[in-house]
Design a protein around this nucleic acid. Sequence first.
DNA 1: TAAATTTACGAAAACGATTGAGTGAACTTT
DNA 2: AAAGTTCACTCAATCGTTTTCGTAAATTTA
Lengths: 344, 344
Amino acid sequence: MAKVDLKTLARELGVSVSTVSKALQDSHEISAETKARVMELAQQLHYQPNPYASSLRRQQTRNIAVIVPEVINHFFSLAIDGIESVAQASHYHVLIYQTHDSRAKEASICQHLQSGRTDGIIISLAAEPQDFTHLLQMHERGIPLVFFDRVCPLIDTARITTDDFASGFNATAHLLQQGAKRVAYLSLAPHLSIDRQRQEGYLEALRQQNLTALAQVVYCGTHETEAQQAIGQLLHSPHPPDGIFASVEKLALATYAVCQAQGWQIPQRLKVVGFANLPTAHLLNPPLSTVVQPAFAMGQQAAQTLFTCLKTRRPIPAQNVTLSAVLEPRGSSQGFGLGKTTGR
Amino acid sequence: MAKVDLKTLARELGVSVSTVSKALQDSHEISAETKARVMELAQQLHYQPNPYASSLRRQQTRNIAVIVPEVINHFFSLAIDGIESVAQASHYHVLIYQTHDSRAKEASICQHLQSGRTDGIIISLAAEPQDFTHLLQMHERGIPLVFFDRVCPLIDTARITTDDFASGFNATAHLLQQGAKRVAYLSLAPHLSIDRQRQEGYLEALRQQNLTALAQVVYCGTHETEAQQAIGQLLHSPHPPDGIFASVEKLALATYAVCQAQGWQIPQRLKVVGFANLPTAHLLNPPLSTVVQPAFAMGQQAAQTLFTCLKTRRPIPAQNVTLSAVLEPRGSSQGFGLGKTTGR
DNA sequence: TAAATTTACGAAAACGATTGAGTGAACTTT
DNA sequence: AAAGTTCACTCAATCGTTTTCGTAAATTTA
């Protein structure tokens, strides 16, 4: 089948290219009759306007970029799901990029996106120690930017997050309430916005119980094996913890793996709570107590924020949108004789 | 910061636009000295060619589309991971679309992609009963198409799959070997390529043990709650199974959920094997025996196939690439006194 | 040294859609 | 009925690159 463009339609109908173009955009300068004729032929020949010609002329692409550490993380794939849903409804197209938590990759991706390939960017930062020049550069170029979850504090734009401090506090308080005395905090990358805030919440919960002296923050990094090593060492330290608050899903699972390998009973010997969006949390052995972020809604929110600004051609306002995460207590943090936690 | 295009560079350097363009492409018609001057200024001003102008002229976009049922399925997110990795290395950009298993959405997405927004498409089909006209239309228009996992048998192009028949056979044989007598097959959508083949394998395994009479195929659909209902009914039928082979991850998890809710012990009362790419399979209660597909490699393979054809501007050859899935036996299918299955 | 070739660049026409300005004809208005 | 409006189009420039063709000058060849 040959390609069909405006010229094709125009020739076929015996009118000019501009008439066809305007008719398809329902312009008032075109008569109802002509519009109908144009529309019909367009339908019949399955005419689709070339988005690149259109982009070039209009200076907008209807593409957005989504940059995340990795798509195989349930939190991020849920967020992408949310973004994609809104995008499809708003007739935007979603480009996906992964940083694998590398700053260099993140920077390189941003570099490429300076070209105008997208109308805006939704990003959750890589864990690797950062300078933010690549982001600042984009911001200065006026490329609309929306952060979610792992945000950049230096750039004044929209930021969609959850209440990490409160979640950190609640998770830790819950562990203490269930009878844990020595709760350790597993950190992914200490300079990451979410990590810092969750850690602050954790520390505050300890402080309120005068347990600050027992605080223990363990840096685990982004690599599975390193994380397991760090956790293994923690369990074999002179004063091992009896509770663990994992700041991210990966670390909660690493804890399970280490405990399984070394025969530590959860929750008898070690109570565990972790941030996680696992669909299998309640099927684990034991069911994992989680802090669940509304990842899908965050994605939707981020996309919505971006699209409304794009539509009105206004720059993104510097606003923080905070959704709440919920603590779902399950078997992995269950204390004994101290009241119940629901099973599910 | 003002936008910088070829004209800017040309003006600044006192040469023509075409010279700059050619210099940046390292054309032989430009002297080494001029090239150097152009390159330097381009670097300095962070020049990025406008991809849409370029696409328009060159008739290729360096975008590809990936259409999957949903990104929050570990199999698909792993595949996307693989695709994105190859794409980034090959300087392609990846557009993501979800069908949520709806034929209408799939058709609508395909309709939009006729516009030339992408150079090619990688797709895994929606589960909903299909006619394939939207796919045939794209194929006729000459849009390069690569299928993975859920393929379309009617279109002669590249198909990346796993050996579903063998996997179905092995999974079923394993259940029988572990002592199950009555193995049921949980089907997602009977007209789906993968479902049919896995079912064939299942039936063949029963046949070899003269158990064809006990075959039981249960259609569960794509909805979580419907699936759980169907499974619940199965367990309460006059002759309930003592083994279940779930054709997809979702159904394996639904089985767990139903068993947990109704107190059926796995594997004592019901042995379970399912296709799954869960990172938590070994942490479930009990650990889930899985058929694991090399999702990442499949994604890579699909992308690689597409890119090499795009590069050589040849149409996609009609080839089937079959990778093998591996059966990982765990606690959920463990028999007693009939030999061991490894733990992990 | 005249002719042929190479070198290094510029002019201009695409790619396909959008859009402001221009244009006859039909229709109002006074 | 002359002047002004509206209607329904067409013309042509434009978006930023790419690429073919043309052409002076420099270089090589006969």
